[in-house]
Design a binder for these strands. Structure first.
Length: 724
DNA sequence: AGCACGCCGACT
DNA sequence: GTCGGCGTGCTC
């Protein structure tokens, strides 16, 4: 008789560990199963875990069924999820389910389209069905042109099932598995010397290497990727390309499709339906797709023949998941590349400071592209407009107005970029440049106008808003970054003849909004584009001859220590929009702090100089990448409950971990959100290991205390947080 | 997380 | 008298 065995099963619940079940038949790790759980039936994944002791056999329930549709998930998938669950201190079961496409999380069988190809045998070709059997004859004709899937056969001849079975029986038809990674390259443009050198570098060595491809805007990074990808495809391997959400555009996809016309691509992004996503996921997993392009979630997709990982725009914040399993796809990509002994390429014009620190530490190797790839195209000229000494109309400095007017006369397109980021207003003196800093730590104080206080979101310090500048007595002190509200309408009043197109969350919310915007822009129907952050991402607006940047200073002295880094990268991006082959573009940045090192570095096109000062500042202040951080966040209907919870967690754990600095609890920057109030506790350590040892204890303690706290309290732990 | 059990307020 | 609020406890 079949012996009853026990099996460990992972389930999508916020509890640590796996659950033990009885199984009547042998089950393979990675298999999806239907299990009774509490009073419901859920999907579980058979885990290759050590059977747990001390669970009485009579309390065990039985696996109800195995769920059909896909093969068992491979061990490499598990090992990556295990790592992510451990590193991000998140329950294994939930981590496993976040790494899966929705269809595989549900307690249902899945049905995938049948990929088997049917082809005529030699005999089949030489024995056509009689002409009077028109349907069979038409199917035969279609099959003569090449193999077909069952779905395509049925669309040609709805009741073909019996015919196919009959032809298979009589040896007229055979099943074929598709050639795994068919490969062919379309015409390839010539690389310039620098690109060729970069490609040679990225192709050198064997096994794991972490490369940073740092190329200025327009330097042709994508072409280098394409060449590098070509080599992998030619060797029959798969390539994983991670891109920010916004960059996964039809233009990017068609560029790949045109270059490798016979290679199957799997695209993974948030717009897909569950069915489409499952299909792409399985194509990648089964090795059918040679190229896998996707957003952060694709870092988990099993890839049996992985040869290379590319993370494009690696500095982009969208690689960090902001809820649930708060993973960073770039960091997991590097981990995965090391494990799979394949190279990883991190591409960016402005690599993140974390990446720069890794280059300096010798963990990553940098390859640079310093020239624009095409013709005589040159970098834009950047001017700083010191608004303290210039006359302004509605927030626009006169030289900027003149420059816009000239472009309108010449029928050239301009972009007015308004930086609304750094929404947390820091108070500054317009005379001496004094900034509201925290006396207790190196963070900056944020104005809360309603409560009339300055507050530190790092340590919780509070003080009243001063009436005059504490440094020079000037009474004209105000929050940085005020006065952009009226700008858009002001532009229209100033240039009534110009066609102004505003691009922001409101105007792009509708589904095909971008298509319409692109059409107008490329048809030359726009004189001035006005927009926010969105414009700094990889949209192609063709050539602009002028970019005016307003309100950038908010990012200079922000409560968020990453604001400077983000500002620099955004300015480099928007500046990169300016300029064409014949005329260099012009960029005007309006600022009160023209002498600030960030702007000086921007003007001199000096990324290394910029990172130098940033790294020094971060080191002095004890912020990443020179330290390692985690944030414990809590929210509740009342701030007090959230703070009390964080306070008791801190009191419980802090004493035993002197190497970890606890700051707070402090109210979070966006204190109120959807009628809930939020607070945070920040942890910092010099070494990652120290932080993680502390976090092991802290997460257990938080889970325990949360059970006794008011039920409405929610908490989360964010490792390597992106924003505080 | 989800789901049930359980014990107190305004409704047919 | 019951329908339903959400506090508490558990899930192999």
């Amino acid at each position: 008789m079949g012996e009853v065995q026990t099996v460990e099963v992972a389930v999508d619940v916020p509890l640590h560990g796996t659950f033990t079940y009885l199984a009547r038949e042998a089950l393979i790790p990675g298999q999806r199963v239907l299990v009774p759980f509490g009073r419901r039936k859920v999907c579980g994944i058979v885990a290759n875990a050590i059977p747990r002791e001390g669970v009485e056999a009579d309390r065990l329930k039985e696996i109800e069924a195995s769920l059909a549709g896909v093969p068992p998930l491979p061990p490499e998938f598990f090992s990556m999820v295990e790592f992510a669950a451990r590193y991000y201190h998140y329950p294994f079961g939930q981590a496993l389910f976040t790494a899966l496409p929705t269809s595989l999380r549900e307690a249902r069988d899945v049905v995938l389209p049948d990929e088997t190809l049917y082809a005529l045998t030699d005999r089949g070709v030489s024995e056509p069905p009689p002409a009077r059997q028109t349907a069979r004859r038409a199917l035969w004709q279609a099959l003569c042109d090449g193999p077909m899937t069952i779905a395509r056969i049925k669309s040609a001849m709805p009741r073909a099932g019996a015919v196919v079975a009959d032809w298979l029986d009589r040896g007229l038809l055979k099943r074929e598995t598709p050639p795994s990674v068919p490969f062919e390259v379309a015409t390839v443009p010539v690389l310039n010397d620098e690109q060729a050198a970069a490609l040679a570098a990225l192709s050198s060595g064997e096994g794991f290497r972490a490369w940073v491809l740092q190329g200025i805007t327009g330097s042709g990074k994508t072409e280098v990727y394409l060449r590098r990808i070509e080599a992998e495809l030619a060797a029959g391997r798969q390539v994983l390309i991670l891109v920010p959400e916004i960059n996964l555009t039809p233009q990017l996809v068609s560029r790949f499709a045109e270059r490798f016309p016979r290679t199957r691509m799997a695209l993974l992004h948030s717009e897909l339906s569950d069915g489409e996503r499952l299909r792409a996921w399985v194509d990648a997993w089964q090795g059918r797709a040679g190229i896998v392009i996707g957003t952060r979630m694709s870092v988990f997709v099993p890839l049996p023949k992985l040869g290379l990982i590319i993370v494009d725009e690696e500095h982009d914040g969208s690689f960090k998941q902001q809820d649930g399993l708060r993973y960073h796809a770039r960091d997991l990509a590097v981990w995965r590349a090391r494990r799979d002994k394949v190279p990883v390429v991190l591409g960016s014009a402005t690599p993140s400071l974390e990446t720069v620190a890794n280059i300096r530490a010798g963990r990553y190797e940098r390859v640079s592209l310093t020239r624009r790839a095409h013709g005589k195209a040159s970098l834009p000229v950047i001017h700083l407009l010191d608004v303290r000494h210039l006359k302004r109309v509605e927030g626009l400095a006169e030289p900027a107005i003149d420059a816009l007017r000239r472009r309108i006369e010449r029928r050239e397109m301009s972009l007015v970029y308004i930086n609304r980021r750094g929404f947390a207003p820091v108070v500054a003196c317009t005379e001496c440049g004094w900034i509201s800093g925290c006396p207790g730590c190196s963070a900056r104080l944020v104005v809360h106008l309603l409560e009339r206080v300055l507050r530190c979101h790092h340590c919780g310090h509070e003080e009243p808003v001063p009436r005059a500048c504490p440094s020079c007595g000037n009474i004209d002190i105000k929050p940085l970054g005020e006065g952009t509200q009226r700008l858009e309408s002001a532009l229209e009043r100033m240039f009534p003849e110009a066609r102004v197109l505003r691009i922001d969350r409101d105007t792009t919310a509708r589904k095909h909004a971008w298509d319409a915007i692109y059409r107008q822009v490329h048809a030359g129907e726009v004189d001035i584009l006005v927009g926010t952050q969105m414009l700094a991402k990889g949209h192609d607006f063709g050539a602009l001859s002028l970019v005016v940047v307003l309100n950038a200073d908010g990012g200079l002295y922000s409560a968020d220590y990453r604001a400077g880094e983000r500002l620099f990268s955004q300015l480099v991006q928007v500046a990169g929009r300016a300029g064409r082959a014949d005329v260099p573009g012009e960029v005007l940045v309006q600022t009160q702090w023209a002498e600030h090192p960030l702007y000086q570095a921007l003007r001199a096109n000096d990324f290394d100089g910029f990172t130098e000062t940033q790294l020094a500042e971060r080191e002095a202040a004890g912020f990443p990448p020179s330290t390692f951080q985690a944030v414990l966040r809590a929210d509740a209907p009342r701030l007090g409950d959230a703070c009390r919870f964080l306070e008791s967690v801190s009191a419980d754990v802090a004493g035993r971990h002197p190497a970890v600095l606890f700051s707070g609890p402090a109210p979070a920057l966006m204190m109120r959100l959807a009628n809930r109030e939020r607070a945070q506790l920040i942890l910092e350590a010099q070494r990652r290991a120290e932080l993680h040892a502390c976090l092991d204890e802290l997460s257990a303690c938080a889970a325990d205390l949360a059970r006794r706290a008011p039920r409405a309290l929610r908490w989360s732990l964010d490792i390597d947080p992106q924003e505080l």
